[in-house]
Simulated scan of single mutants.
Amino acid sequence: MRLLLHQVVCLAVLVVIVLLLAGCSSLSRGHEALLVLGDLAAGSEESRLKARTEAPTREGIRYAQEGRDYQADVYHPATPDRGMMILVHGFTEDGRRDPRLVDFATTLSRVGFTVMVPELEGLRDYSISTREVVAIADAIRHATQALPEGEPQTALAAISFAVGPAVIAALQEDTAQRVSFIVSVGGYYDLVEMLRYVTTGEDRHGEGQAAPPPQRGARWAVLLSQLQWLEDERDRERLATIARRRLASQAESAEDEPIGAEQVEEEVERLGPQGRALYALVTNQDPARVEALIEALPPSLIAELEALDLSNRDLDRLEAELVLIHGPQDRVIPISHSRRLRDALPEGQARLFEAGGLEHVAVSPGWRDGWGLWRAVNHVLRLGEQQQ
């Protein structure tokens, strides 16, 4: 606790010195950014931001776009002075009511954002696909239709595997001008390279820097996310059983050999051709085989991977500014993905904040490199002010 307090105090002193040189408006915003970081670290516990601000009200809503029905939560701040933000959750069975997501949305709303959190079924059941693109684009349409006249834009914030669908949703012909900026936390750019890293540990775009070893269990989360494209229901059930057993055993055991390995091998023996192809990709450890293993997947799965891949997209139609926040030691999606996404856009359209205090999408307990996180939050608050 003393170390954490010392780090926060040192960061605060440095921030104050910089902001005194920058002016009163920046000083106030910089202080807010510190309060936001403190509140994110506190979660549902007490914080200075909670003590200083009124809690937002949460409203559950239903809406429809062209016959497609949705649910969402909207967090209304006591003082709505930073415009609308659509917050897209990552993989979580709790969906929009995931406690961490609720805390995040509440924090954003305490500093003036009206936050809309749509329920995305594909991210709840680990079956991400282009339907999430449609759902996010529909959320943009609904949010901007509901805004007062003269406020036609909203911001987007997306986490991890939701970043690709969010960016693609903001590329649609009728949504491109409705999104002012996008906050990407630990997002991907190239799905082939993401699969290569998660399965083999190789990051080919690491700019000479060795990537940390991938997180144990990440490959099994990827397996769960693609099962819906297998035609054989028995393959889907067997692979879901394998993935969940592997995830559970790796959470319980520090050993390399997962618990229940014999039962897993028995399930693998019963797989059909499509199931075997997907299992071969997920368990592969040879970086050179990744492309060939992808080509052996069912055509519907390949089509979805290509549709969600940002590296083969024409990003020229993206009008929103991009705020990329990524931890250099991310063990799920390497920081090289955010660097490449930044470089794929015109100079100045995207800013990357390399935040050492970020472990994929969670703030580390010690706030390592709190300076990077503070700069990112300060920038988001400034962009939010410009929406008004």
Rank of each mutant, 00 (worst) to 15 (best):
E202K: 00
R97F: 09
L278K: 05
G60W: 07
L310A: 03
A243W: 07
W374P: 10
G348Q: 13
H379G: 11
I86M: 08
I17G: 07
H360L: 08
E291Y: 09
L35S: 01
V13A: 12
P152N: 02
Y63E: 06
V8I: 15
G112M: 00
A64T: 15
Q386T: 15
R289M: 08
V13P: 09
Y188A: 15
G23H: 00
A157F: 09
M85E: 05
A280F: 00
V102Y: 08
T200N: 02
A42E: 04
Q349D: 09
G206P: 01
M84I: 06
L40T: 02
T92D: 00
D94R: 14
E193M: 03
D314E: 03
L341W: 14
H6V: 07
L301K: 03
G208F: 01
A137F: 01
R317L: 00
Y197I: 05
L27M: 11
P287Y: 01
I302L: 11
A176I: 14
L87K: 09
R342H: 05
L297P: 01
V323L: 03
V88G: 06
R244V: 08
K50L: 05
G201M: 00
L381P: 07
M85I: 08
T175S: 09
D98T: 08
L4Y: 11
H337M: 00
P334H: 04
T57A: 07
R382W: 11
R246L: 06
L37E: 11
A155F: 11
E233M: 12
D235P: 02
W229D: 01
Q153H: 07
I86Q: 02
A344C: 05
I259R: 14
P165S: 02
S249V: 05
A146V: 09
I159F: 15
A105F: 13
R339L: 04
T79H: 10
S127F: 01
V185P: 07
P287V: 04
G187E: 02
I128A: 04
G186Y: 13
E347R: 12
V134A: 12
G208K: 00
S109M: 06
M85T: 13
V13K: 12
E202M: 01
E321K: 09
S300D: 14
R196H: 01
Q329N: 06
G112Q: 04
A41R: 10
R339P: 00
L171C: 15
E354W: 09
R313E: 06
P258V: 04
R204H: 04
Q209L: 08
R68Q: 12
E291K: 13
I335G: 12
R100I: 10
E66N: 13
S26P: 07
H337Y: 03
